[in-house]
Structure formats: structure tokens, C-alpha cells
């Protein structure tokens, strides 16, 4: 499967990445190899096999609706790249 520069641009856009032209060519190459590797799987005959979504056959892992204390706000905010007294700060996102 060929990965075009348009595909790379599209994926980069969705992932909010800004790439230089050199990076895009390199990524097109790498993505092609990755997809090619995964393509190997399509050689298998999986007629009638249900998709595996989890590695272990466990179901209904649920917890009771009980409160636990939340974290101290300082702890939650301590790794924020930018913050004020109470909130995370991000670049303005509204149009």
C-alpha cells in the first residue's frame, strides 16, 4: 500500500502536528513500512473468526458507585505546562 504525501498531511492535521516537507517524506516512507508489516496479517484466513478486542477473556469488570476522595488540586496541577491558581491554561481554543 502506498502512503501519499496527502495521507501524511491529513493524519498530521488530525494529530495537530506541524511537519516539515523532509519530515513528511520520511514519515510517508516509515508509515508505508508499518502498514506493509500489518498487511502481512491479511494473508491469514480469518473467515468466521470473531474480532479479538481484548487479550484476556474477562467481562463485566465493574466497581460499585462509591465516592473516593479526589486529589488535592495542587497535585493535579503540578505538572501543568501552564496554570493559574485553579485551572490548567491552554492557548485560546474558541474560534
Amino acid at each position: 500500500m502506498t502512503i501519499t504525501i496527502e495521507t501524511v498531511q491529513h493524519i498530521a492535521h488530525l494529530a495537530k502536528l506541524q511537519l516539515s516537507e523532509t519530515e513528511m517524506f520520511r514519515l510517508a516512507d516509515e508509515m508505508e513500512k508499518i502498514v506493509g508489516f500489518a498487511d502481512k496479517l491479511s494473508e491469514l484466513d480469518i473467515e468466521g473468526v470473531k474480532p479479538t478486542t481484548h487479550a484476556v477473556a474477562v467481562q463485566n469488570v465493574l466497581r460499585d458507585d462509591e465516592l473516593k476522595p479526589s486529589y488535592d488540586r495542587e497535585k493535579i496541577l503540578q505538572n501543568a505546562p501552564e496554570r493559574d491558581a485553579a485551572c490548567f491554561l491552554v492557548p485560546k481554543v474558541v474560534e
Binding site: 465516592l67 473516593k68 486529589y71 485553579a86
Partner: peptide, 17 residues
Amino acid sequence: CGCTTEFGGDENTHVCP
């Protein structure tokens, strides 16, 4: 998670990892 769903509260005080 076990954080409360209560409306309002000081900003980022009903939060855990």
C-alpha cells in the same frame, strides 16, 4: 473513578489521576 459528580465545586477539586 470515585470522584464526585456533584455540580459546581471549586475548579479542579473533583479530579483525580
